[in-house]
Design a binder for these strands. Structure first.
Lengths: 221, 221
DNA sequence: GTCGGCAGAAGTGTATACACTTTTTAAATT
DNA sequence: AATTTAAAAAGTGTATACACTTCTGCCGAC
């Protein structure tokens, strides 16, 4: 089955949603998207379906697709799951840690720092999330990496909506600390830092929204 | 967007795959499925796409859909994630345990026992998996329940392929023990039992396959 | 006898057509 | 003026058509 065209549309819409060029709740009319991308509704529908599986949009029968507006309650559940998963992941990571893995993490943290300093909001959110996915991938567990990736992208909307620049800096600092604890093979400290880190991110979700766009062509251009 | 017809097809195919009426690797031709269900390829394609997200089938560009044949290595990764997640879930469960929750779990275990005794292979696999999902749902974390559900269905194929009746009995016994430890609020014991249980399930995956069908109508009838 | 290649068949990928549902608009009634 | 209703517009749901790719089987070359 062909996926390249569809996945292009998925990526474009994902970016637009995650960067808040499309407001939560905004209607995504199939024909308008089809016109914009120069394809038929068929491909747009495939993309929309895929996005609905990622929880970035909501599909209502016979009514259409709408940009998701995940509730804070839902985000809290997601964070609860992440704490469960990542506490144990951190333990496992310490047990099989190697210099190469630490190096990879530290490089990643440096990239984060650059994005935070440039105030590249979308980029920093992606990179801050990727730190956790990276850990999973370095452990060699693809399944873990994928699940974690889904969880993180699932609340990317929320994080983006609610995370301030100072909170992002704080996250980056905490990643530095976690990487150090991992390098020192200090399991208990690493686990505690990770847990605290996730609690901090969750706590720092505030509630001031930005002004959004409803015009599809504008948002995707 | 309409989902009822599509999800009917998804369920039918899921059952057929999970009950091994469709062999891992079997081709799922769109037109044949469309004829079988009396719908157009459009709906079949939607269903196939959904199944591919659940990892029950594999989609190859321009070649079509094939029943997935998850590797044992992949199953091991899935179990590793489950151990991480369920250890912490068990801890959290003990902290908020109530008599009603224990009652619900014990009722569930009784149902399992019935299915195991009747040698209802598909039913018992579903119920044995649901025990874990049930725990998550009883904790009130929908997200956790969904993720766990996906993980479990993801290796349902493997479990079904490889789990013997005696292993199923063993699993049921272990669920009884876990429920008891939860009722006693013995956190450490519950966590240890859960962890051991998952290791046992994983260990008991053997490698004798059954004879499969390739004929779609036969398998789905 | 085996290998390569060339129709023809079968199957997937995308666009379009059309039925049916929801939303909008505007007129008519109270 | 507010509310109801009806018709038109817009939009989604499914089927079908057609282009293009992959597979199959047969023929000829070696």
């Amino acid at each position: 089955m062909e996926t390249s065209t569809t996945s292009f549309i998925v990526k474009a819409l994902t970016r637009a949603i995650v960067e808040h060029r499309l407001q939560p709740g905004a209607k995504l009319a199939e024909q308008k998207l089809a016109d914009h991308f120069g394809v038929s509704r068929t491909l747009v529908r495939q993309a929309l379906f895929q996005l609905s599986q990622n929880r970035l949009i909501r599909l209502e029968p016979a009514r259409g697709a709408f940009v998701a507006a995940p509730s804070v309650a839902e985000a809290k559940q997601v964070f609860a799951v992440r704490r469960m998963l990542e506490a144990e992941m951190t333990r496992a990571f310490v047990r099989d840690v190697t210099p190469a893995k630490i190096r990879a993490l530290k490089e990643h943290v440096a990239q984060e720092k650059a994005a935070v300093e440039q105030e590249d909001v979308a980029g920093r959110t992606a990179l801050l999330g990727d730190f956790h996915v990276r850990m999973a991938a370095l452990m060699g567990n693809q399944v873990l990496a994928q699940i974690l990736g889904e969880l993180i992208s699932r609340c990317a909307l929320i994080t983006l909506m609610y995370q301030s620049t100072s909170a992002a800096e704080h996250s980056n600092d905490e990643h530095v600390e976690i990487a150090r604890a991992l390098a020192a093979r200090d399991e208990e400290r690493a686990v505690r830092l990770m847990n605290d880190h996730l609690l901090h991110v969750e706590e720092n979700l505030t509630f001031d929204r930005k002004v959004p766009t409803n015009d599809i062509s504008m948002a995707l251009s």
